Amino acid sequence: EEPGTYGVALYRFQALEPNELDFEVGDKIRILATLEDGWLEGSLKGRTGIFPYRFVKLCPDTR
């Protein structure tokens, strides 16, 4: 996996908008950016989108 910051999904998130990223509990999401209003941008399984930061637990930065 690529170096960078990752978050592990604490809850299932179902995308409601085309720019959102849906995921299941336990998915490991690569964090790409921190956005305003409590949203993160991340990538998972070749898809990129935004999601609420409270749905993931950030992992320590590992290489």
Rank of each mutant, 00 (worst) to 15 (best):
K45A: 12
L35T: 08
I50K: 15
D22V: 03
S43L: 08
D61W: 10
E17T: 11
V56L: 07
L44I: 11
D37F: 05
D22N: 13
G4I: 14
E1K: 13
A9S: 05
L32F: 04
L32Y: 02
F55A: 12
K45G: 12
A33H: 13
F13T: 01
G7L: 01
G26E: 00
D27S: 03
L44P: 05
G26H: 03
V8C: 06
F55N: 07
F13M: 12
V25N: 02
L21T: 06
I31Y: 00
E41N: 06
Y53E: 15
L35M: 07
T62A: 13
C59A: 07
T48P: 01
E24Y: 07
R63A: 14
G7R: 02
E17G: 14
K45W: 08
W39V: 06
E41H: 12
V56S: 03
T62G: 14
Y11R: 15
E2I: 13
E20K: 12
L35V: 10
D37I: 00
S43F: 10
P60N: 09
P3Q: 13
G26V: 01
T34H: 14
R54V: 12
P3Y: 14
D22H: 14
G46Q: 02
K57F: 03
A9V: 01
Q14F: 07
E24H: 10
L40G: 08
K28C: 10
D37Y: 05
P60Y: 12
E1V: 13
R63Y: 12
R54I: 05
P18H: 09
L10G: 02
W39K: 07
L16E: 13
D22I: 00
E20R: 09
G42R: 01
G7P: 01
E36P: 11
L21I: 04
P60W: 09
D61E: 15
R47A: 05
T62M: 14
R30W: 00
F23N: 01
G46L: 02
K28E: 11
R30L: 11
E2S: 05
G38W: 00
P3H: 14
A33G: 10
R63W: 10
P3W: 10
I31M: 02
G46C: 03
G46N: 08
D27P: 01
I50W: 03
L16N: 15
L58K: 05
K45M: 08
Y6W: 06
T34P: 05
R47I: 06
V25F: 05
F51S: 01
D37C: 10
L35A: 09
L32K: 05
P3R: 12
Y6M: 08
G38E: 04
N19T: 10
R54A: 13
F55C: 12
G38N: 06
G46S: 06
